[in-house]
């Protein structure tokens, strides 16, 4: 999770290998099931796309081709990676539409995307993404464009299908509620970097990064009595063309003066182990110059009471 422009989509597109070498330079390492994707042959990555890793996008209307039927688009996705007859693929597509909860899939399969409602389109996108039974599903803001009741349907669907298909899901969102509903592990991004990561419990109940604290204070809590005032983070997110030196959060950080010297403005903090390490799969980590003990103390004594 992270704010707009923090690099969530760019990261997930990199995993899918959807950046062209002309528009982006990618370094580092992406491993899918042990296989290195950075620097791998384009065609090899292409073969993985849709089959081993699949993606659904924010706006289900523009993400489907307006000129082809929903069925055709699902069938196409299936037949790229599976040598089956058109008929078998069609039966599979109907089955998939049925599984994502489209009523009367047999007749709806020949509908065009514009004949579906927003929620149904997103269901169809999910059917398409899951048609090859991928082990990784990336959902980039899958419910941002949907109404809250439809959002709840889609989140339920993703959770149910995740269990049914036993796939890993990466969900990208700026809605802390959605994160809490679905995520086991969370990475908080700021200005193109992960600044805190950990289990959902750790991020919500014992966060250690000042930016995470800020996020939690900025949003009205639906599950608590209404507070008098929200506690916004001052300033605005930085431009990624000129990222502040040192810790990218320093111009907006309330706590930088508690760090000795000028480390906050000169030295970029690394994502280091933090907290009690109660992560399910990833250990809790934060990128901040404040010592862990002090962060925990600030959270417990200053931030947490403010949020309650």
């Amino acid at each position: 999770m992270g704010e707009s422009g923090s690099g969530k989509s760019v990261s997930s597109m990199a995993v899918m290998g959807l950046h062209t070498s002309r528009s982006a330079r990618i370094s580092g390492s992406i491993r899918l099931d042990g296989q290195e994707l950075v620097g791998a042959k384009q065609d090899d990555v292409r073969r993985l796309r849709g089959q081993k890793m699949a993606m659904i996008f924010q706006d289900p209307l523009s993400a489907m081709h307006p000129f082809y039927t929903v069925g055709n688009q699902i069938i196409e996705a299936y037949r790229i990676h599976n040598q089956v007859s058109k008929k078998a693929a069609r039966a599979h597509a109907i089955d998939m539409l049925d599984r994502v909860g489209i009523p009367e899939p047999r007749s709806r399969i020949d509908a065009y995307p514009h004949q579906f409602s927003g929620g149904m389109r997103q269901r169809a996108m999910i059917a398409m993404a899951l048609s090859c039974d991928p082990s990784l599903l990336i959902a980039d803001e899958p419910t941002t464009a949907l109404d809250v009741t439809v959002q709840a349907q889609i989140l339920d669907l993703i959770r149910d299908l995740q269990q049914e298909f036993d796939s890993a899901v990466v969900i990208i969102t700026h809605d802390l509620g959605v994160v809490a509903e679905l995520a086991d592990d969370i990475v908080v991004m700021y200005a193109g970097r992960g600044i805190e990561q950990g289990s959902a419990e750790a991020i919500f109940n014992a966060p250690e990064h000042p930016y995470t604290w800020g996020l939690l204070g900025s949003m009205p809590r639906f599950d608590r009595p209404p507070t008098e005032r929200l506690l916004p983070i001052k300033g605005t997110p930085p431009s990624l063309i000129r990222v502040p030196s040192g810790c990218a959060f320093n111009p907006r950080c309330e706590f930088s003066d508690r760090v000795r010297g000028d480390a906050c403005t000169t030295e970029r903090p690394e994502l280091l182990p933090a907290g009690s390490g109660t992560g399910a799969h990833v250990g809790h980590g934060a990128a901040c110059h404040l010592p862990t003990a002090e962060r925990q103390q600030v959270w417990a004594q200053e931030i947490s009471p403010r949020l309650a």
Partner: peptide
């Protein structure tokens, strides 16, 4: 229904 559908940022509630 609408209120019950709001995702709540509390992992304990899930």
């Amino acid at each position: 229904a609408m209120l019950s559908a709001v995702p709540v940022p509390d992992t304990g509630r899930r």
